[in-house]
Every structure is written in structure tokens, then in C-alpha cells.
Write a protein that binds this DNA or RNA. Structure first.
Lengths: 159, 159
DNA sequence: ATTCTAAATGCAAGTTAGTTGCAACAAGTA
DNA sequence: TACTTGTTGCAACTAACTTGCATTTAGAAT
């Protein structure tokens, strides 16, 4: 009779999120799993306030006491420090955050009238970065870059 | 005897700043001249707080009552709306603002360790913008763009 | 399993940035 | 010079965010 697989406490999605946390040296806690799940679920960059507003909809959070807002700030800051998320400014009057999927070349077009956000990939910054470093007196390396485009979406331009 | 030149109340620099304000439909007031002068003088993007801190050093301000902080917020917001200044995120924990000199292609490299900021020009975004619009389902025009590079300066990389 | 320790969380209180409503004032115009 | 509208200053307010500290807990050591 074959040994039955040992039951694990973590659901598959939990184990994926838990691994992400563990790999960057963060302890796996309920608030961190929850906030990370919000970022995973979100299709676009979101603010601290939006994270806070989305948390109560998670089953794991509904089942237990709500997460203190101080904790949300600290969790988001730890994610940012560890490079799990990045800060983006879409000129919505505050900063937003989004998960960093890989070493992706991922950017946004924002409508300055209605705020609509669309993604685009591949900004071809590598050659730009090379020449920028060559021309710079002070800089040695560039690890990250942001590119955001601001314009008008089709709906707003025809208003 | 030749007619003496009529004395003008505005110094040359005032008239230049005043013209900038008038050209975008803003009334020429003491707070606006002062804040605009701070932006003109600054070599790099600055925050609302830095503007407020710099104002008392201006002779015109020293000579009269200080400018209310509410007014600073409103002046900066009016400048941003009129396109005199732009908002930039250098990941210093807040938003900064800098004067828009022309239709310039002006960007920054920021040291993620010490915060040093250096300018660079010409990011070659025009072709990027063309392909981004072509690939976009929703967007029709792009009027503005931001490009910021984040890395380590020579000093910090050797620490 | 149990114990241990550093890290993470929650709470309460405080600080600061930024906003709003309104009355007084002043720039630009007739 | 007077008028009108936009601008400013003040006071009060709101919300974002921070700090200090006691409690709890994840992960590692035993």
C-alpha cells in the first residue's frame, strides 16, 4: 500500500504566494499573503487606499479580524524594498503600486482626461540606457527605468 | 532735451516671469512671481515643501508678509494645469515639480542609494510613441511622456 | 515537539500634508 | 476711477501617514 501524500496546510495559490515572500526574505504572514494576492489579482497599478479597500473582499480576511491600516503601509513598504512591487506615477494625484512580474519592460499609457490606463511592453530602453551612462559624469549603472506616456483615449478625444 | 525713458515698475526678470504667467492666462501676482522664480532658479525638480522653504529667501518676499501655504499649493496646481511645470516621480517618497523649458525631451537618472539626480536629454521616444499608438486599442494621441532611469552613482557603487 | 528570538502586527496617539469655505483683496479691463 | 472676476489669507477640517510600545507569531534552534 503506497504512502498517501501528506496533506499540506497551504492551498496551491497560497504556496505560490508564500514562496514569493520567502524567496525575498520576508516572513509569510496573513497580512502579507493577503496584500500580495490583491496585487496579483489587480490588472493595473493601485494605491495604498485601493489595497485597503480590496482586502475585506478576500475570504481569508473575512474569516478573521481585519488588517490594520498601519500594517498595510508597512507591508507595501517591505514589498517595495524587496522589489516585489514598483511605484508608478500615473498622475492620478497619488502614487500607485504594481507587482513586478519578471524583469519586465512594462509601461503605461494614461488618458489625461479620464484616467484610463493601458499597458504596453518593450520600450527599447537598453540602447538609451547605454548612451545615458556613457554621457553621464556621475552614474555607473542603471537597474530600473520608468516610461509613461500621457495622451487622450479615443473616447475623450471625440468629446 | 530728450524725453527720459519712462520708468517701469518691473525689473527685467520680473517682466520675463510676468510674461510667462500672462501668456497662459494667469494673473500676475506676487505669490505666482515668487514661486515661478523659485522654479526658474532650481537646477532640479523640487517638492511643494521645498518651494515653501525656498520662498523666504527671495528679497520680494522678505520685504512683505510671507506667502500662505494654501496659496503655494494653489499656485503650483495652477502652474501644472497650465503646463508651466510638470510633475516627476524620482522615488524620493513624494512628487516633485520642475519647470517645462520648451517642448523639451528632458529626463532624469536617479541614484537609488543617495538620491542624486542628473539630467539627460533626448530619449528618442517618438518612434516608441508611434508604435505604442499603433498597437493600442484605446489610445489616439500621446502629448507627453516621462522617462526616468534608476541606478547607482559612482560614489555609491564603490561603497 | 518545545523553546527561543527577531520580526511583524495592532493599537493609540501624534504629526503633517493637503483641502475647503468664506471673507477680504487686487489684477486686469472698461 | 470703478467694476468684476480671479486670487489670496485665514481658520477649521480631513485624511494620509508615522511613531512608540506592548503583544504576538513565524521560522529556526534545540
Amino acid at each position: 500500500m503506497p504512502t498517501p501524500a501528506k496533506p499540506t496546510r497551504l492551498t496551491p495559490v497560497h504556496s505560490e504566494l508564500a514562496t514569493m515572500l520567502a524567496q525575498c526574505g520576508l516572513k509569510v504572514t496573513r497580512p502579507r499573503l493577503a496584500v500580495l494576492k490583491i496585487f496579483k489579482n489587480s490588472t493595473h497599478p493601485i494605491s495604498v487606499q485601493e489595497v485597503a479597500a480590496a482586502l475585506p473582499s478576500l475570504p481569508t480576511i473575512q474569516a478573521s479580524p481585519p488588517i490594520n491600516s498601519v500594517t498595510i503601509y508597512r507591508v507595501i513598504d517591505s514589498f517595495r524594498q524587496k522589489g516585489l512591487i514598483r511605484e508608478v506615477n500615473l498622475r492620478h494625484g497619488h502614487l500607485d503600486y504594481e507587482i513586478i512580474e519578471h524583469l519586465d519592460d512594462h509601461h503605461h499609457i494614461v488618458c489625461t482626461s479620464c484616467g484610463l490606463v493601458e499597458d504596453f511592453y518593450g520600450c527599447g530602453a537598453t540602447s538609451l540606457i547605454r548612451t545615458a551612462i556613457k554621457n553621464s559624469r556621475n552614474f555607473a549603472t542603471v537597474n530600473e527605468h520608468t516610461v509613461e506616456l500621457f495622451g487622450l483615449c479615443r473616447k475623450c478625444i471625440s468629446l
